[in-house]
Amino acid sequence: MLSIKQYSYISPKHACSLPPKAKIACAEGVDLLNLYRSLGLDYPKFFKMDVLSKLGILAAELLLAGEERGEAEAMEDRSIACFNRSASLDADIAYAKTIQPQDFYPSPSLFVYTLPSIVTGEIAIRHRLRGETSFYVTREWDAEFVVETVRQIFAVGASRSVVAAWLECEEDRFEAFMMLVGDDGDGLKFSTDIANSLITDLRLH
């Protein structure tokens, strides 16, 4: 049976992880840069990322920090599936500003983030996760689609756990809801109802 072993949530209102794995269990009034600092991260690449990747990196840090793994130990059987509504729109707009006909200086560092799936790679690199990575764009948070997609990943047979996340950002609004789903039955039942119930509670916090 698939189960939600732990989860993390970040919005401008608050950030938390359950069970608390990182140095911060719950924070009120979230700014991504401040959250990076309060987590005590030392990852200079963070500053070069677009907001979507920053959000994914921080949510993954809240979710996975403290896992008992060797520093260099990779996980071949952990996959990543991310979902959102706005794809990489913020990064697309930022890049588009660098290619105006009257001011044409295309920025390579902005261009590299003009695909939403980049965030899955950033998380995989940071946490040495070597399973499948995928990114899906849906009209809104769709628990049924998330649950079905994750089940399909397990059905392939190569994954023992999946990091599944809703990572949405547009201008100054952002929301990350990230779950670690496992196949050992330890944790909350991984279902549409439970996933919906969790995100609803977290949004109302």
């Binding site: 070069k48 200086y105 295309p106 920025s107 390579p108 560092s109 590299v112």
Partner: peptide, 12 residues
């Protein structure tokens, strides 16, 4: 990528 960004900086 930083090297490419420096090339843009030189031109801009």
């Amino acid at each position: 990528i930083d090297a490419l960004e420096l090339i843009v900086l030189m031109e801009k």
